[in-house]
Each structure stands twice: as C-alpha cells, then as structure tokens.
Write a protein that binds this DNA or RNA. Structure first.
Lengths: 141, 141
DNA sequence: ACCTTATTTGGAATAATTCCAATTCCAAGT
DNA sequence: ACTTGGAATTGGAATTATTCCAAATAAGGT
C-alpha cells in the first residue's frame, strides 16, 4: 500500500491555479482516489451521481480536465478507447490487459526513465513521455 | 536514408494472411511509403484519390486496418487526435511536437527496449510496448 | 446586499470511426 | 468460357466520445 496524497492538496492545487474548490470537483477527485481502477468519464459520472445526483456529464468532463490541468490526475489514452483517469502521481507506465481490458500501473524507476530519455537525439526536448504496454496480465497482487 | 522494405512484400504479406492484393490496398500502402509524415486516414484518402479518384473513405479505413493487421504499418495514437499511420517497421518511439503537430520517429536501441521491458513485474506478459514523447523538436536533419 | 466572474448545466454540435446492406470483383472449379 | 461463392469496395447512416454553447447558478470580494 502506497501513501495517498493528503486530502487537502486538491483545494491547495486549485487555489494555486486561481481556481475554486467546488463540491463537484471535490467529489470527482474523491471518486478517483477511492477506486483506482482507471475509470472513464462515464464511469466517474455514474459513481459521482450517488453523491451528487444532479451533476451533469459535461461537468464531470470539466472537472476531470481541471484536475488534469492541476496535475493531480493523469489522462490515460489507449488506442481509440475512451480516456481513462488515474490519480497516481508517481512516474509510472500503463499495462493494458487485452483480455480483461483492465489497466495496471507499472512503477518506473528513475534509472529507466533516464535511459529512455537518452534515446532522444539532440534538438528533441521532451516535456513528457508515455509508456504503454499491451498484453496479458496475471498479476501476483 | 534507411533501406525501404522490398516492394513485393505487400502482396506476400497479404497472401500470408489469406488476403488479396487489390489496387486500393496497393495504392494506400504506396502512399504511406512515399511520404512518411504520419498522415491521418483523411490525409491518406486525399492522396490516394489522385490515383484512384473513386475510392471511398471507408475503403481507406479498411485498407489501413488490413495493413496494420499484416504488420506492415503501425497505427499511432496521440491523445484524442485522429489515428496516424506509419510504415516504419523498425522498433521506434514517437515524438510529437506540440507546436507544429509533427511526428518524428525515434529509433529504439534493443538495449533500451530490453530495459524498458524489465520494469514489468512477474505475471505481466507484454506483446507490445508503445513509447511516446511530447515536447518541442528542432531536429538536426 | 451587490457586482463580477467562475462554474455548472442540458442540449446541440462535432469529429473520427465503424457499421451495414448493396453492389462489384475475383479466383477456382466445372 | 461460365458459373459461383467468398472477398472487397462503396456510400451513406449510425455510433461514440467529447466539446461547444448559451443560460442559469453560485461564490468571493467590496
């Protein structure tokens, strides 16, 4: 079990960007933290509804986008399937199980990250790198 | 300049999969080989039209899908933007320039690929890995 | 309280892709 | 050559995820 980010970081991060901590944003974020199974926007929508029955799908998209902007959440894209959302802030790759469709986080040691960045020729300045595996998973844990 | 794959490999690969070498498939493939700028399906459609004015967009999608199945072409996805197509068969990553939108191939040495695969815990069996950089490019060549 | 701006909302619009049913095209067997 | 069955193509409709938009609501600073 990894340490979770402190709960107050949302309000903090939003404030840093001059944004407000609304109930919608808080619930969307808490839903992501509660069940870290890389839900789609629709899935987040369904989960948030039980707490905020009148929230709209557009708002869920807005909140998710805001959280991504604040760097509290990562948007994960796999092929052409709907975007999934991930509150894991540690450097990690994603593993997509072709059979089950489940997505797993794979921690990336700094050394590997460094080596991957080495492959860039002069003149290429990367602001981010995304590593995605596909295959079959039979995770131990 | 890298060696191009032999021209006859299309017919060969298709036959291997029990598929036919149609004019549409040939022209779509040749268009990809001729200008390797990671075009979208719409862009391929536009280029193919000059040679086959009556081809339909659906056929372009079909042909591209077929080429991907035959492993002659890779489908490249960036965020939510349209899929791009790439006939480079060497192991390589992609670099997406945020300013220009251009995509560059970055060769991946086998050693790096090996190290990246090392990060997978026991029980994860990857059939492929996708590495994508985003940032700013000022390529030497 | 008031004003200004941020945020939310529902519905319409968009964009990329896929689906579908109707031809058309081949290739193999007679 | 002629048929025939499956493959491939075609145009258009449908789907899906997401974004856009304009109106309504909420919230913080004065």
């Amino acid at each position: 079990m990894q340490p979770l980010p402190p709960a107050e970081s949302l309000t903090q991060r939003l404030a840093d960007s001059g944004l407000r901590a609304t109930p919608q944003r808080e619930v969307v974020y808490s839903v992501l933290l509660r069940k870290r199974d890389h839900p789609t926007a629709e899935e987040v929508f369904a989960r948030v509804k039980s707490e905020l029955p009148t929230i709209s799908l557009a708002t869920v998209y807005n909140c998710l986008e805001t959280l991504v902007q604040c760097e509290l959440v990562r948007a994960v894209n796999f092929e052409r399937s709907p975007t999934r959302y991930c509150p894991n802030l540690r450097p990690h790759a994603h593993f997509h199980d072709d059979q089950t469709g489940r997505t797993y986080d794979i921690d990336l040691p700094p050394a590997v990250l460094a080596e991957v960045n080495q492959v860039l020729p002069a003149g290429f300045d990367a602001s981010s790198v995304e590593i995605t595996f596909r295959g079959q998973a039979r995770p131990a844990s």
